[in-house]
Simulated assay, not measured.
Amino acid sequence: MQYFTVAAAIMSTALFASAAPTSTPLERRACSVAYPQSIGFPINYDIHQDAGKTNVRDDFISFTNIPAGSYGCQLEVNFPAGYTIESSGNSKVNIFTEYGANKGSLFGTVEFASSPVAPTKYIINSATCESVMTYRMSIASDCDAGRVAFADTKDAGLTMTYNC
């Protein structure tokens, strides 16, 4: 009799457990995207310098449309296949933070390039989201001449992703 009672208890527990609701699979969340502040697109960037770090022309990029409470801000570069980017000499670009407590610090280094056959995407760096996030782009070399120029549009260039 005890055997029957124990077996019945185990069976009812197993049946109850199998009838318990199952959780739904997690859905991948979409990131929000902020575009650089501008009067309109395209934004034409032309970052260059002559040898000896003379005739320097830096460009600035600012994001002012990130909602309060956002998290995981990530500065990204996206170019469709074959996107035109003009470059010459030493075209690596340093990106410096121009806001908050870390103003003036190196945020990342990038060589703007696109693939002739596939879209190109790379992440420069991530930071805590702020209401205004501004960066300065400058040729990275302290002595070589260099230039990089491209048009930033809604389909190509720099963006800030957040809430991923």
Results as ranks from 00 to 15, higher is better:
residue 139 I to K: 01
residue 111 E to L: 10
residue 80 P to D: 13
residue 103 K to L: 03
residue 38 S to K: 07
residue 113 A to P: 00
residue 147 R to N: 15
residue 89 G to E: 08
residue 131 S to L: 09
residue 93 V to M: 11
residue 87 S to H: 12
residue 129 C to A: 02
residue 122 Y to C: 05
residue 119 P to T: 08
residue 74 Q to K: 14
residue 67 P to A: 11
residue 133 M to D: 00
residue 66 I to M: 02
residue 76 E to Q: 15
residue 151 A to T: 04
residue 10 I to A: 15
residue 131 S to H: 06
residue 34 A to V: 04
residue 30 A to Q: 13
residue 10 I to Q: 13
residue 47 I to C: 11
residue 92 K to W: 09
residue 116 P to G: 12
residue 82 G to Q: 09
residue 37 Q to I: 03
residue 103 K to A: 15
residue 28 R to H: 07
residue 122 Y to Q: 11
residue 142 D to P: 01
residue 10 I to N: 12
residue 77 V to L: 15
residue 109 T to H: 07
residue 51 A to C: 05
residue 44 N to E: 14
residue 48 H to K: 11
residue 129 C to H: 01
residue 108 G to T: 10
residue 27 E to A: 14
residue 1 M to H: 10
residue 56 V to A: 09
residue 52 G to R: 11
residue 9 A to H: 04
residue 78 N to G: 05
residue 67 P to Y: 04
residue 14 A to G: 03
residue 92 K to T: 08
residue 15 L to G: 12
residue 13 T to R: 09
residue 111 E to T: 12
residue 64 T to S: 15
residue 101 A to H: 06
residue 155 D to C: 00
residue 153 T to Q: 02
residue 98 E to I: 00
residue 110 V to W: 07
residue 54 T to Q: 13
residue 121 K to A: 10
residue 77 V to Q: 13
residue 23 S to V: 07
residue 14 A to E: 09
residue 87 S to M: 06
residue 142 D to G: 14
residue 141 S to E: 02
residue 27 E to C: 07
residue 21 P to H: 10
residue 49 Q to G: 10
residue 120 T to R: 13
residue 125 N to D: 14
residue 153 T to G: 00
residue 22 T to I: 06
residue 61 I to T: 11
residue 141 S to L: 01
residue 31 C to D: 12
residue 87 S to V: 00
residue 102 N to V: 00
residue 162 Y to E: 02
residue 31 C to W: 03
residue 129 C to T: 00
residue 56 V to Q: 14
residue 105 S to L: 09
residue 36 P to H: 04
residue 71 Y to A: 11
residue 66 I to Q: 03
residue 127 A to D: 04
residue 144 D to S: 09
residue 13 T to L: 15
residue 108 G to F: 04
residue 138 S to M: 04
residue 11 M to P: 00
